[in-house]
Amino acid sequence: MSDDGDHILPEGAAPGDGDRILSAEYVLGLLSPGQAAAFESRLASEPALRDITAGWADDFVAMTDTIPPRQAPRRVWRAIETELWPETHAASTHPARSARFRLGRWLGGAMVAAMLGVLVVQSNLLAPPQPGLLAEIGTAQSAAHFTAAYDPGSGELSIERLGPEAPSGRSYELWLIAGDAAPVSVVVWPEAAERQAVALPTELAEVLPGAVLAISDEPFGGSPTGAPTGAVLATGAVVQG
């Protein structure tokens, strides 16, 4: 069966049309698995392509606007709880936080990322001297912006603040979230610091690949409870550098 992905352009196409078509075909699910995988690896390193793709996703989702919402039966939520928190689903409203990390869950997250093409854009600012793990921690909605790089040789997580300092009287706090486990505080960001290096305990370093790093807004000196209490200002997935 021919899979004519290379000859993508219709007659009279303009520069950039190839990527416009390819990203639309990706969102529609018209690419072969091989083409989709190749496209996703480009998404990871080409912000412009990612923006075109997100634009198509926003446009195409309008085809669901006329679909009326339907109340899902209660058993659906109960099944979700049972699958995610088998040990505590009976008491679901109490956020009983398990300190255990579920290693098998990384793959699930990676699949979601691949499926959506929501791969983390590697930071050009980091340019790591050796292979390791990287995360870009930011959002479009907040100025808070950090990058992190983990060096398996030294066991240190180096974090750099690229955005503004925390507002007066507040602190940024960096959290590590692995799988379905509760967030673990990595560091309360010292006032005005631009860089921090944190020696990660082995059990945290082991769960770093595929984990998420997040910055929350906390009272000065950090969360008083040991769990995030303020707004989540920035998040980023840890990926291979």
Binding site: T53, V112, A113, L116, V120, A211, T235, G236
Partner: peptide
């Protein structure tokens, strides 16, 4: 929703609304 729970940390990276 299982995927949403596990993938929420990657939401920002995609640029989707």
């Amino acid at each position: 929703y299982i995927k949403i729970w596990r993938g929420a940390g990657r939401y920002n990276a995609g640029g989707y609304s």
